[in-house]
Design a protein around this nucleic acid. Structure first.
Lengths: 185, 185
DNA sequence: AGAAAATACTTTATGCCTAAACTAAATGAG
DNA sequence: CTCATTTAGTTTAGGCATAAAGTATTTTCT
């Protein structure tokens, strides 16, 4: 099972629609000059379209089958393979969300008895979060379904091409990461 | 220029982190049985990672440079090439969001003078939204930057591979779309 | 014509997400 | 030791997203 980590809220969408070609492809020509960012724009549109479609379906399934949300699932996923738990501050980094966002999500998982949160004896600022047995059971049940849903969504797409995509997307990710790091420096 | 259209809020993320291999790859083995959804899961993780990274950067730029959000931009993008405006109900479809979500976004764009909203004389239930001259100016200014940001984020990635990715993602999108339609039928 | 169904849109309740301001605890420098 | 800084986390204000319920209006069916 995967552990989503992205921070994909409010990502921009242009034209990702059903039939027609993306609006801004044309738009760019009208706007003119900076002629050729078309390939880049197109990749962005396709990424968005795929992520949205799949994400919407997974979210729906999570809600209908488990009355659960993906962000909650993501937290459990991180904790599942950490037998001694995790320093709370590790979660925002791994899940690529802001710390403030996690506070209420963790609160609710604690309330629901799926995880515990306890202060570190070494540093009273630090909290340690750890999955409970119940949390582990719940997670595994959901994780299994999660991977089946994904498999069925992508079943039609040949395995070899999936592997190819993984490679391309990995490289793309790294290229983007380098670009953002440079931009900030 | 692209017109994002996805509805990619709250998409799930697993492990998409910097260095290590996704958590749930291992997890799946522990969970067992349904052995091979690994390729599918991996593609999903990569999609999420790429979309998040790029989306976060674009969102930041929009905020810092224009004090604007992507959803607002997306609405303008749809309207930009519709000289007579658009029936309001068309927007949720094109942008792949729910209608309820759009109401306050459109409200605010009207308040800001970037679009107008007027009732259809033919059907009093229907509203027609249309960009104003000011809206058009604002959109074009932002759209230009938007495509430049994207170009610079993806500059390092070879053009030929971008084109390849577009093709693969298009096919993937269609495969997913068929799968979800079947699932609902 | 009149009731029922469909359509266009808004409202409500809830949750995720961010940025920025805030609190508390630990560290470090004089 | 004490004050400034850093670090961990929470809170706040605001926007985006959904689902589900509600309001008007039009259409459809008899």
């Amino acid at each position: 099972m995967p552990v989503r980590t992205a921070a994909q809220r409010n990502v921009g969408r242009y034209e990702v629609m059903a039939g027609k070609e993306p609006a801004l492809i044309d738009e760019e020509n009208i706007i003119g000059e900076d002629a050729d960012n078309r390939a880049q724009v197109r990749v962005w549109l396709r990424l968005l379209a795929c992520t949205s479609l799949i994400g919407a379906e997974l979210r729906r399934q999570f809600r209908e089958e488990f009355d659960f949300t993906m962000p909650r699932f993501d937290v459990l996923a991180q904790l599942d393979r950490e037998p001694v738990g995790l320093v709370l501050g590790e979660l925002p980094k791994r899940l690529m969300v802001t710390a403030g966002n996690l506070t209420p999500i963790v609160d609710r998982l604690v309330e629901d008895g799926l995880i515990t949160r306890s202060p570190s004896p070494l540093d009273r600022r630090v909290q340690i979060v750890c999955m409970t047995a119940e949390g582990r059971r719940a997670f595994r049940r959901m994780a299994k379904k999660h991977s089946l849903w994904l498999a069925s969504l992508l079943a039609e797409f040949p395995k070899a091409r999936l592997d190819g995509l993984v490679k391309e997307l990995d490289d793309l990710k790294n290229a983007v990461k380098r670009a953002t790091e440079e931009a900030r420096a």
